[in-house]
Design a protein around this nucleic acid. Structure first.
Lengths: 213, 213
DNA sequence: CACTACTTGTTAATCTTTGCACAAATATAG
DNA sequence: CTATATTTGTGCAAAGATTAACAAGTAGTG
């Protein structure tokens, strides 16, 4: 579950608001691709299923980005959101685990234009180390800490079996990692200044079966 | 983003509570594997980063599952939660998209013991149709609606390119699907009685970069 | 048994989040 | 220019979620 610590970098922006910003960004990026120039809180509301008032209020926490009677200039708002979320740069990511999930992530082409780039892949399996996955050669996880430290990488994706996840996470933290996207179906224990987000499809599925007959 | 509709099947349980139940279930399943017999709201709290009071309150919405002075019998609570989430059965799932992500999902071994089983895979690419992925042969997406209807499948996972996601979702709804786990980075429009959950790693990553320097 | 140490379920208070409603600003049409 | 349509940003009220606190029940110890 999300920690809702108030972080120093933001001026006390609620975590729940920060969580919605990437959705706004994604929708705006789609609109830009469609060649649109202007949008409104109303239109975003319909696309995202979030009320227009909430979208306006969320954005107003960071500045006045719209114009009455007109709405929001898509290019401009995109730019602002990218700045706020710090994805007006490309973050290097270390990927740990080159099994089925890790390999799929390594080959995924959707990171680049949204602020991220996988730059190294590690695994502990000797049969996998040295093999090509996507554009990279899988490195031994024994080199992991040294590589990440040297490259000063801050973000890691964790795609190892659940039993190894905590141990790997500990070493990632030791290597200077400050944000972990964890695909292993287990809660991680990390220091307060390290952020963790979880992806576990079963959690989402179980959340839906509750509502099925 | 989650719709927070109150559903008829639950007695007005807040959606946010339903969203935490699968986390409780997962933690308890781990404890059971470790051979533990008893736990407490305190221990769950430490494992999950959710306050003990909240865990007790969430559970109390469904019944009195604990015992003062002792805590919760893990087996019993597991059973209750599985019943509440309706995963005391195994749900068949249709998987659409046999690319990198779809294939990784198809081969994932972690569904079975948590209430789900992929039983069919579809793709529209003629080069992929007919090939073996995991334990299944990829079927043409032209057969999709017929197959899903015939098997009365209610849950689908969507792992197709973003541009095709809405069109495929529409056909899934037509086939009787009531819950979609969408891996495509786009918001879907579906009827009120169809549930959608989203998995987009970039959304999670951007949520974390906000807090990085 | 008496006493201590736990732990639940629940109430009341606090804190957070959402939605409403509207003034102010802009655009459009006649 | 005037009247009508939009649409933002925001103050306030309402709704919702979380936390703290505690009575009541259980277990363990001597």
């Amino acid at each position: 579950m999300d920690k809702n610590l108030i972080q120093s970098s933001g001026r006390g922006i609620p975590d729940i608001v920060v969580g919605r910003l990437p959705h706004y960004l994604r929708a705006l990026q789609h609109m830009a691709l469609e060649g649109r120039r202007l949008t409104s809180s109303q239109e975003l509301s319909e696309r995202l299923g979030i009320s227009a008032a909430q979208i306006r209020k969320d954005l107003s926490l960071f500045g006045e980005f719209g114009k009455q009677g007109t709405g929001y200039q898509i290019d401009f708002l995109l730019d602002q959101l990218r700045q706020i979320l710090k994805v007006n740069q490309v973050w290097d990511i270390a990927l740990v685990g080159a099994g089925d999930i890790g390999s799929a992530i390594a080959r995924y082409q959707g990171f680049e234009n949204r602020g991220f780039r996988v730059t190294m892949i590690f695994d502990s399996n000797p049969n996998i180390i040295g093999s090509q996955v996507g554009a990279f050669v899988v490195q031994s996880s024994m080199e992991m800490v040294a590589c990440i430290s040297a490259a000063q990488i801050r973000i890691a994706m964790l795609a190892v079996p659940a039993v190894n996840a905590q141990e790997v996470a500990d070493r990632l933290v030791g290597a200077g990692i400050k944000a972990i996207l964890n695909y292993a179906p287990i809660s991680l224990n990390v220091p307060e200044d390290v952020h963790v987000q979880y992806i576990d499809p079963v959690i989402h599925l179980q959340r839906m079966t509750y509502y099925l007959d």
